[in-house]
Structures are given as C-alpha cells and as structure tokens.
C-alpha cells in the first residue's frame, strides 16, 4: 500500500550509499574488483541524479526557457505583435507604468475575488462531498464518477453552456429565479458576473478535489475514530476533531494548486462574454490578470506591455508561493 505511507519524516536522511557496510573479503583480486565497483558506484551516485533531471531541463531549455527570456527581454522594450523583432528600448517603463495602471489593479482585484470565491466554496463543498462519500454507500462508483464528470469538459465547452444558463433575458437560472419570485440578474455585469465566472470554475473542479479529500480521509486510521467514539464524541465532533486535523497536509496541497490555478484563470473569463472581446465585461467587471495579459498582447498587440504584465504576475505568484510555504512550514512545526 504505497500510498498509505503518509507524511514524510523519513527516519534516515538521504539515500546515502552504504557502500562500506558490506562484508569485506580479503583477497587482493577481490579488492581490485571492489575498487572498480566502488568507482562505478561513486560515479553512479554522483551523476545519475543529474541524468534523471536532465530530460526535464533539456526540454525546458528548448521550449520553456527561450519564451521566458524572450518575454523578459521584450518587457524592457516597446514592441508590437505586428513586428515582434522590431524592438525599441523602453527600460523599466512597462513595469513602472503598472503602478498606475488602474486596469491592471482592477484585474488583480478581480482575480483575487474570483480566486477566493471560486476556491473557498469549492474546497468546502469538496470536503462536504468527500465526507458524504466516505459513508458506506450503495453505488459508490456511480457517485464518484458523476462528481468527476465535469472535469472531463473543456473550459470552452463548459463556459459555452454556462453562458446560456446564465443568460440575462432567457437563461435558465434567471428563469428559475423569476419562478421563485426573485428579480432577474444581469449575470454579465458587476458582482454577479464575478460569481458567475467563479461558478464555472467551481463546477469543473469540485468533484476532483472531493476525490482527493476522500482518499485522504480513507487513509485516516480507524482507531482514531473508535477512541473518539469511546470518548462520546458525536459524528460532527469526530469530523471536526479527527478528520479535519488529519487532512491538514492535503488541504494545504489543494490550496496551493487551486491558488495557482485561480491566478491563471483565463478561458472562463474570456468566453463568458465573448462579445466584449477580452475586456471581461463592459466595465472590466470580470477581467482577470490572465485575461488582461491576453488583451494587451493578443488583442491590442502590445507585446512589450503584455510581457511586463506576465512577469509581474509571475513575481506576484512567487511571493504567494513563498508566503504559502512559510505558512505551511509554520503549521507543520506547530503540529
């Protein structure tokens, strides 16, 4: 049961070779043989790690590094998509202008809001569903597969359906609201639009995260619950005092992955109101950073500006990543 060997903390650090610990023979020939072996051994220990990571880095250098360096270089220039090689030095202007680019900060706020609104309920619901799926169920595979089905849908296909469902005048959701006596909502403007875009993200990912949580729940030793039950804890108390604390590492992992995903939300916002191009609503209501970058680069063709936005996003993400790792380290040491 490989997966059930949980949380790291290996007793021996590193995979150091116990070369010297073998029984020693005394014949000189044996000695030479061993020296040869040991040399090969050393070489293997020394170089094979590099050989193992090399393919990734070679591919990365071939197809990842050049784009990265190029956009870095382009971000220091005034350069248009219509002539990507025709660069005019601009220094840090593309970066400094971001400070008073209200559209950038609007996009940053939207990304944050959509990120939170799509991540928090999503993970909370995933947790709830996982809890339910963890009961002894009839047809458990059916439930699990249906939860996962949205994940198979492409962003484009999912967004297309939701655009129709969220239609202001003839969409099903407003029809249902009207049925309940609530006034119809313009789902392509204001706060409602951010919630609508978040809904698409939630729909696609909740089931997937639920299964991850379910897996982690099933790895919690049974006797923890037994002893909690002996202490007279209700099921709810068991959930809060046994299940949740045991899931902490898993929760952290899903939070990190969802955060990165949320920062890069793009397709949903682009297609949610395709009639407005890439501006994400009339008043940039749901324009995310990914979409703003796309608008500047692909629609307005300002390659230099778009590159600077990309690098700024990159920097923000790294900061978030660092904060995240600090927090998780704190949590780990405190537990």
């Amino acid at each position: 049961m490989p997966s059930r060997h949980s949380i790291a903390a290996p007793p021996v650090k590193g995979g150091a070779a116990p070369a010297g610990s073998r029984p020693v023979g005394s014949a000189p020939e044996d000695e030479r043989q061993r020296a040869k072996l040991s040399r090969r051994w050393q070489r293997d220990l020394r170089w094979s790690p590099y050989a193992f990571v090399a393919p990734f880095f070679l591919l990365f250098i071939a197809f990842g590094l050049f784009p990265l360096l190029y956009t870095g270089w382009a971000s220091l220039h005034s350069v248009e998509l219509t002539a990507p090689t025709d660069m005019e030095w601009a220094g840090l202007k593309n970066f400094t202008r971001i400070f008073d680019d209200e559209f950038f900060w609007n996009a940053a706020r939207n990304t944050l809001f959509i990120g939170i609104v799509s991540t928090v309920p999503q993970l909370a619901m995933a947790m709830g569903i996982a809890h339910l799926l963890n009961y002894k169920l009839r047809g458990s595979t059916f439930w699990r597969v249906s939860m996962l089905a949205p994940y198979a849908t492409s962003v484009a296909a999912a967004t297309l359906v939701f655009v129709l469902l969220f239609g202001r005048d003839y969409g099903m959701i407003n029809w249902a609201l009207d049925f309940l006596g609530i006034n119809p909502v313009d789902w392509q403007a204001g706060w409602a639009s951010k919630i609508a875009v978040s809904t698409i993200v939630i729909w696609r990912w909740t089931g997937y995260n639920a299964l991850i949580y379910l897996a982690a729940m099933q790895a919690i030793p049974h006797d923890l619950y037994e002893s909690a039950a002996l202490d007279g804890a209700s099921r709810w108390r068991q959930f809060f005092h046994v299940t949740l604390p045991s899931l902490r590492p898993t929760i952290l992992f899903t939070v990190v992955v969802s955060t990165i995903g949320a920062t890069q939300i793009f397709g949903e916002a682009l297609l949610f109101d395709a009639s407005k191009g890439a501006s994400g609503g009339s008043e940039h209501d749901f324009q995310t950073l990914g979409l703003y970058l796309y608008e500047q680069g692909w629609v307005n063709q300002h390659l230099g500006r778009a590159s600077a936005i990309a690098w700024t996003m990159f920097a923000i993400l790294i900061v978030i990543g660092l904060v995240n790792s600090v927090i998780s380290r704190r949590l780990r040491t405190s537990s």
Partner: peptide
C-alpha cells in the same frame, strides 16, 4: 516550481517564433 507559475498565454508568441 518557478516554471509552474509562468502565465501560459504569453509564452505562446516566442514559442511560435521558434
């Protein structure tokens, strides 16, 4: 880990040049 955080929409242009 850093490469995970590169926004994919932009690499598209230099990659296309390649």
């Amino acid at each position: 880990i850093g490469t995970m955080m590169v926004p994919p929409q932009l690499s598209v242009i230099p990659l296309y040049m390649m």
